[in-house]
Amino acid sequence: MEISMIIKPLLETIQMVVISTGIATLLGIPIGIGLILFDQKSLKANKGLYQLISGLINITRSIPFLILMILLFPVSRLIVGTTIGTAATIVPLSLAAAPFMGRIVEGALKEVPYGLIEAVLAMGAKKTQIIFKVLIPEALPGLVRGITLMMINLVGYSAMAGAIGGGGLGDLAIRYGYHRYQMDVLILAVIVIIGLVAVIQSIGNLTTKVIERKR
């Protein structure tokens, strides 16, 4: 076994996780804001819309990732022209993580005390100003913690995707470790995944600490 054979899959995993996190965050933030806005005791209460968004999130999150990936093959083919490899895996990874991110955003924004919202409303703020000048900045440490959690979940999902043609460390571990009985490759892939998770968690903790130190 050559150590160099781990480099390419590692870079592929990092690529999948980072790009999916970016897309899921971009999709998840509006979902979370929607949940907060339409919640019963909120700025623009709308029970029907809240339940619709919440229901869709629950359905998406209930589907096991491997099955979701298979269901999304046509979407992957439509967007990137293939159903195998790193680029194809980014599509289901992003779509699986976006509802999770939506819940993370909802939870983090709900932690902001209502008194703060009311104080800014009393200054004459509009709803969009409340979101961008109060809710998101105040919830930032919680959001960073949530994004870290999501990235770690995505490392796990990306490894699972290896079972059905996704690239990265999961693919390496399954191809060599499982199909060719090369246990050393399997163990090395697991060690690298553990290291990757530890690095992501450390970066998340450090970022949160920097934000909180200024407060």
Binding site: G115, L116, A119, L121, M123, P137, E138, R215
Partner: peptide, 15 residues
């Protein structure tokens, strides 16, 4: 609201 200021018991300052 821009013509009325309001202050609160629990300050409500943004951290």
């Amino acid at each position: 609201r821009q013509r009325t200021g309001m202050i609160f018991q629990h300050f409500n300052l943004l951290s």
